[in-house]
Design a protein around this nucleic acid. Structure first.
Lengths: 202, 202
DNA sequence: CTTCGTGACGACAGTTACTGACATCGCTAT
DNA sequence: ATAGCGATGTCAGTAACTGTCGTCACGAAG
């Protein structure tokens, strides 16, 4: 679904558009670069840009749909026996793994979004969509409705907090590890004691 | 601050723009009405519309800033002695009181927003801003940080859920009453029993 | 009474995000 | 071959949003 164009045109038009956009946003800022510029640098026309992205903002959120799909896929492929929180933990750790090697890009992206309210709006919308998709997947596993949405909220919050820390920390830890600590912290809240482990028990 | 224009132009330009917008949105839909149309119906120019509203969407969210200000004002004017949840309850009930007599308008507004993703984005952003403002006010009352944000989240969630029910219910109850029930429900969660009251104890 | 801002608006031109309609041309299946 | 399909190009158009300057009532200062 991502590998288009092997014949008449250069391949990976989407990827070229995204890369061109990041370069231009970094060099001259988000609102000083036009869609026409992005398209030209990618060797395409403005019209084609809007065939790949519904609007200018979406070029910064191409990964969100992939992330959502991966999260749901990971959760659906898990046996339905174990605890619900464990299932969510595994699914979230799965998508956290997909971030490996993209920290610098993610930091650039965050800086751009932080400087533009319209992009923050879109970011929140993507988070809400991710949460809804996760809640729906939990419902498919048999969890009733207040719990499904509440647990999805918590799991997505853990992911976002971990993601933010991952970008902030000076030493470069693995995001999956930070996510795991987050879920440990949540579990500790329920048991009334301090976190049971900092790494998986031997 | 809201009562401009008593001389050379008709008064209440903002109000006229808002009313014109609602009428046109109701008659021909949000995206089939242009800012030029709204401005003309209000007896103003397009340029003036954008002096009052940062963009076309904002004309539907003029009340949000007022609501936020009222919520903070109500909370700040409360004595700092009592319980934190009681203070939030009183503040939220105060702004709930401001909705009286605007149910039909609110339902129209909700229908418009529900039909347009861009407006839902803005709606979520306004809710986030309200939550942040409430958390900050709670911090001013001495509540430390994880609690302030978490409690603000809960209080705003109660308000939004109550608001939605208020619009849905066939018989027209008072929003303040529904908000009160919501806070009762939350309090019951903490005490481990069912809600203590459905209406204020006699 | 004059003068001097100041605030709210109009007029106008310009940019740019976004859309619709139609043409082009390699690829694949029949 | 040919017919359809899919990704793109071309072109024209709409409407959201911005910068700049001019206008005119008002109120304060002189």
């Amino acid at each position: 679904m991502y590998d288009n164009d092997v014949g008449r045109w250069q391949p990976d038009a989407r990827g070229r558009l995204e890369q061109a956009a990041y370069e231009l946003f970094r060099d001259q800022g988000y609102d000083r670069t036009t869609v026409a510029e992005i398209s030209a640098r990618a060797g395409l026309t403005e019209r084609t840009f809007f065939r790949h992205y519904a609007d200018k903002r979406e070029v910064l959120f191409g990964g969100a749909a992939f992330l959502e799909a991966e999260l749901v896929r990971a959760l659906d492929s898990l046996p339905k026996g174990g605890s619900a929180m464990d299932a969510m933990r595994i699914a979230v750790e799965t998508i956290a793994g997909h971030m490996r090697g993209r920290r610098d890009l993610a930091r650039e992206r965050r800086a751009i979004i932080a400087a533009h309210p319209e992009l923050q709006e879109r970011d929140h919308a993507k988070r809400a969509a991710l949460t809804r998709a996760l809640a729906e997947a939990m419902r498919r596993r048999g969890m009733p409705e207040p719990e499904a949405s509440l647990n999805a909220d918590v799991a997505v919050a853990v992911f976002y907090v971990a993601f933010s820390r991952w970008l902030d920390e000076a030493q470069q830890r693995d995001l999956v590890e930070i996510v795991r600590e987050g879920f440990d912290h949540i579990a500790a809240l329920g048991s009334g004691s301090r976190p049971r482990r900092k790494t998986p028990s031997p």
